[in-house]
Design a protein around this nucleic acid. Structure first.
Length: 422
RNA sequence: GUGGGCGUAGCUCAAUGGUAGAGCACCUGACUGUGACUCAGGAUGCUGGGGGUUCAAUUCCCCUCGCCCACCCCA
């Protein structure tokens, strides 16, 4: 048997509706904030991610699906969406308009060991604001994300931090390095190695040893420059104003190089170790890094399978609106009836009704059983008896009552029924 | 990449060194043109794959593959 490859999962019919609903709720909420959908390629030149995400990051250095195409060019299955969104922004010179707000959803790929809430092909919904430096853009983006969680009825806890900018972060880094230098012995060996490439990461190491060692470490928040500090305060003020609850977490650091200033994460219960369902922040340098004009941006991405896990473990989660079009199940007996039935079915569908039919000529008993399984509101029965009279038997499955209705009156009968019930 | 756990029917899971069972689902009938409830019956397994120990392995040992969880990393 050929199986799907590791970390690549099917989303079966029973679950796909939930995913579609997440996407449609995201669409609904995001569009009220003035975002428009962008559809991006799944494969990009490898160079885009090396330059965009940073070649020392774990994602780029060991988690990408990279391969040469038939001409030998190095391509990569996208591990995230922001780099592509920015590439498209620069490529299509969208900066000629003052502000671009886009959202996207789709599969991302990272070669990691699968575990709960983590697979190799995973789905993200993301949003990016390109061309707005204001704290209001950060706050609004966060508000939109929290609105989305509310829309699907999922509880998340918001954490925010600031990583400073190119003028204050290096100063802080030196300060932090000085501290870590003194405490090198107390760090886990992972972090001792990390000091060189990204010392900030030592702050959010899970090892109790490191947590202990860094409790007295200098905080980024105390080292922000005037502008960054004001920006952070303004974001906080706006969140307060909008009554959005948050925790500041000065240890929260990013694995992707492009982040500056505001960063945030939403965590949820029930996910095990992978408890972040959404993460994002400001990235003011990425556009210029990818050869566009200096363009400040904010964005986030949320993980759909993690969202689904939290959603499914939460009794209070909002439910997708059920299909309001009642299902009609048509049962025909005999050749003549089947022929006549086809026409009736076609007519009903043209009226926009949801119709399924027994086309295999099974017994009435079996067909009724099937109608019941499918949750049909009505079963229509057409056999020789009915054909002779030019009528059809309509059974209301729930009420367990049936009546005969002339063939040309089926639609009006159903419509009357519906209006009576409503 | 590292560690731990687990692979038995479509699903959830039992069992024993002597070649496997339950519940759910499925199918058939009681009801020859009527579902749900009931009752009676039925089918289903290379016990993940390979090797070893043994008279005998689903059970014990080794390898391998897969899944899960954790580390790592991240959404």
């Amino acid at each position: 048997m050929v199986k799907a490859i590791r970390g690549f999962n099917d989303i079966l019919p029973g679950e796909s509706g939930l995913w579609r609903w997440f996407e449609s709720e995201a669409q609904r909420v995001f569009e009220t904030y003035g975002f428009a959908e962008i559809r991006l390629p799944v494969v990009e030149k490898t160079e885009l991610f090396i330059r965009g995400i940073g070649d020392t990051t774990d994602i780029v250095s060991k988690e990408m699906y990279t391969f040469p195409d038939r001409k030998g060019e190095s391509l990569t299955l996208r591990p995230e969406g922001t780099a592509s969104a920015v590439r498209a922004y620069v490529e299509h010179k969208q900066y000629t308009s003052p502000l671009t707000k886009v959202y996207y959803s789709g599969p991302m790929f990272r070669y990691e060991r699968p575990q709960k809430g983590r697979q190799r092909q995973f789905y993200q919904i993301g949003a990016e604001v390109l061309g707005d430096a204001s704290p209001a853009a950060d706050a609004e983006t966060i508000a939109m994300l929290m609105d989305f969680f509310k829309a699907v009825g999922v509880e998340g806890t918001l954490y925010i931090n600031s990583l400073g900018c190119s003028s204050c972060r290096p100063v802080y880094k030196i300060e932090l390095l000085r501290f870590l230098g003194v405490h090198t012995d107390e760090l886990c060996k992972n972090c001792t190695k990390r000091i060189e490439e990204n010392p900030l990461r030592a702050l959010d190491c899970k090892s109790p040893k490191c947590r202990e060692a860094t409790t007295e470490a200098p905080s980024i928040i105390d080292h922000l420059c005037l502008d960054c500090n004001k920006h952070f305060d303004d974001v906080i003020d706006l969140l307060n104003l909008m009554k959005i609850k948050y925790h500041t977490d000065h240890r929260m650091v990013r694995g992707l190089d492009y982040y500056t200033r505001t960063t945030f994460e939403v965590k949820a219960e029930g996910l095990g170790a992978q408890d972040t369902i959404a993460a994002g922040g400001r990235y003011d340098k990425l556009v210029s890094e990818l050869n566009g004009p200096d363009t400040p941006c904010v964005g986030f991405a949320l993980g759909m399978e993690r969202l689904a896990i939290v959603y499914n473990s939460n009794e209070d989660a909002n439910k997708p609106a059920p299909l309001d079009e009642p299902l009609i199940y048509v049962i025909t007996l005999g050749k003549a009836a089947r022929k006549a039935g086809m026409e009736i079915i076609k007519g009903l569908r043209e009226d926009g009704r949801r119709v399924e039919a027994d086309l295999m000529g099974e017994s009435v008993k079996k067909s009724m059983k099937r109608a019941d399984k499918l949750g049909a509101a009505y079963a229509l029965l057409l056999g020789d008896n009915e054909l002779e009279e030019g009528k059809i038997t309509i059974k209301d499955m729930k009420a367990a009552e049936q009546t005969n209705v002339p063939l040309d009156k089926i639609s009006t009968w159903l419509a009357e029924r519906a209006s009576k019930k409503a």
